[in-house]
C-alpha cells in the first residue's frame, strides 16, 4: 500500500520543526526557506497550515518538464527531481497549480517534496501529529482532486466540470 502525507492543520502549532527537519534532511542546513514543506500563517483565523506537494496523479510538473528531469518513484509514488538532468528552466514551477515546486537560486535547479524515499523527515519531526505518513486512501485528498480537475486543461467528455 502506498502512503501519503496526511496534514491536519487543526493540530499544527506553527513550531516549524517540519521546515527545519526538511531543510536539514535535504540541504544539510537549518534554513526554512529551503524546506520543501512550508507552514503558512493565517492571522485572521489564528491558524497554521503546513503544506507541500500531494504527489498528485496529474503531475503537471512532470508533464511540463522539457528535459525529462522529473521521474515517478514507483515505490513511493513521489514525483522526484533528477538533479543531474534538471536545467533550471522553471517551467514546472509555473505548471504546478499547487505552488509546491520551487526554484533554488543557490543550485540553479528546482526542489520539491520527494517523500524522503518513503521516510519523510517532516512527519518524524512533527511533535503534535499534524503531519503523519499514512495509507494513501486515508488522506482525504478527494476535495483537492476536484480542484485539480478544474485546473486541468483536459476533461473527460462525460464528466466535464463547470467552466468554459
Amino acid at each position: 500500500m502506498q502512503r501519503s502525507l496526511l496534514i491536519d492543520p487543526g493540530k499544527c502549532t506553527g513550531c516549524v520543526q517540519c521546515e527545519l527537519a526538511c531543510s536539514l534532511e535535504k540541504e544539510g542546513i537549518f534554513n526554512p526557506s529551503k524546506s520543501r514543506i512550508r507552514v503558512f500563517t493565517f492571522h485572521y483565523e489564528g491558524r497554521f497550515v503546513p503544506y507541500t506537494c500531494t504527489q498528485c496523479s496529474e503531475a503537471w510538473c512532470m508533464q511540463a518538464c522539457p528535459v525529462d528531469a522529473i521521474a515517478l518513484d514507483a515505490g513511493t509514488g513521489a514525483k522526484v527531481i533528477l538533479d543531474a538532468a534538471c536545467v533550471g528552466c522553471k517551467v514546472c514551477t509555473i505548471s504546478c497549480p499547487f505552488g509546491t515546486v520551487n526554484y533554488n537560486s543557490d543550485t540553479g535547479k528546482v526542489i520539491k517534496c520527494d517523500l524522503c524515499g518513503g521516510d519523510p523527515a517532516c512527519a518524524k519531526a512533527c511533535p503534535t501529529a499534524a503531519i503523519t505518513y499514512v495509507d494513501a486512501d486515508q488522506t482525504g485528498y478527494d476535495k483537492m482532486r476536484v480542484w485539480a480537475g478544474k485546473t486541468d486543461a483536459g476533461a473527460m467528455a462525460s464528466t466535464q466540470y463547470g467552466g468554459t
Binding site: 505552488g99 526554484y103 480542484w147 478544474k150
Partner: peptide
C-alpha cells in the same frame, strides 16, 4: 518572486471565488 509562483495558475484556472481573500 520564485517561491510558490505556480499557485497563480491554481488561483486563475480554478476560478475560485476569493471572497474575503480578494480584499486581503
Amino acid at each position: 518572486y520564485t517561491q510558490h509562483i505556480g499557485v497563480l495558475r491554481g488561483l486563475i484556472c480554478s476560478r475560485a471565488p476569493l471572497g474575503a481573500w480578494k480584499q486581503r
